[in-house]
Design a protein around this nucleic acid. Structure first.
Lengths: 187, 187
DNA sequence: CTTGCCTATGAAACGAGTTGCATAGAGGAT
DNA sequence: ATCCTCTATGCAACTCGTTTCATAGGCAAG
């Protein structure tokens, strides 16, 4: 489990409240790591108890008070140790792959409609990534910070883009295969 | 949650015991869906109670008795209904992406070693997929079954191959980026 | 003026997945 | 002789993630 680490990285990139973190996990970070606000609040509280992060109460007008979090020295050490640990293999769980193999025992045309919708989602996600890349990394402001923070964010985004392109090409392959089978078994 | 559906598909492709299923989930099916024997036994028992699968006790000599499962009519109906449901977006959880962004606040060279090991794992996985493709789908026995079971298994495998190729190319990109940053910040 | 959304945090219950342990006989290795 | 591995199933405890609900003020739309 590494939600703690994802929170540490996000807070190092930019400190903020649990609520702000939850929104980031719905956006940029959420493309490769999902978390609900419940998880974030709970883990954040534990991390504060362990001294990984330090909270500062910020009174606000018109809005509820918020707790502003920043990474403490202990949290920094934890992250550094984690970077030295081996990368764990992702635990795969692809609904779609199961459905495709299941289509042999059901109605392939039913699946085709769902795959087309799914393809649309990934097509939009790719467009969104590309727009983000243009905005944040390929524009006139592509500064070479010494820490390489932006450069590393960019290479992760390029990974997302490569993933979406690969997925779209594969979904076309899937659709062609389903069509072929449907044409054969349909009559 | 769709472990039930993964089990149904696997049992339709070939009926068998919980133990056999667990081994399949460590092999072919495990490439896109992981499950331990604990989960499988528990879910299998529930599915039997719900009438989705039917069990048959098979006494064996020298080995413990086993329960041989096959999909019942109700299970077939459940699977068919599931195929009509929309495909849920995968919940992403990429340790590596978090680590890469974390490398901006730690030691990039520590991460490089881990990425190189990780690349090795994916390289081996690709080789394994390609060997499996050659063995099961590209050999002399590539029969056109009317139900398209093998064809659908093949397109899922092609997805795995495409994923590994994309990942390897991206990992090279990641390594080049880490090298660049390390060279810049190292001195 | 009431309904609904946004900010901001949190409790409680539930469900799914993981880990450790237990049983038990057959067979191979040291 | 002893240890390890494989087949085959299962219980119990635990962790992690999801869902539902609650509070509470401000703001905008109808």
């Amino acid at each position: 489990m590494a939600l703690e680490h994802a929170i540490l990285v996000s807070l190092l990139e930019k400190p903020g409240s649990g609520y702000e973190l939850a929104r980031r996990f719905d956006r940029s970070i959420g493309y490769f790591w999902t978390a609900t606000h419940q998880q974030i609040y709970r883990v954040l509280k534990r991390m504060e108890g362990d001294g990984w992060v330090a909270a500062r109460e910020v009174p606000q007008q018109g809005k509820p008070d918020k707790k502003h979090y920043a990474v403490a020295a202990a949290g920094h050490a934890v992250l550094d140790a984690w970077l030295h640990e081996p990368i764990e293999p992702e635990s795969v769980r692809h609904d779609l792959a199961v459905k495709i193999r299941g289509a042999a025992f059901g109605d392939p045309s039913a699946l085709m409609r769902q795959v087309e919708r799914y393809r649309q989602v990934h097509s939009e996600r790719l467009a969104h990534y590309l727009a983000g890349e243009l905005r944040d990394f390929t524009g006139p402001d592509a500064p070479a910070e010494p820490d390489g923070m932006g450069e590393l964010q960019h290479v992760v985004l390029r990974g997302g883009i490569a993933y979406e392109r690969m997925t779209l090409a594969w979904l076309d392959d899937v659709l062609a295969t389903l069509h072929r089978i449907h044409a054969r078994t349909g009559h």
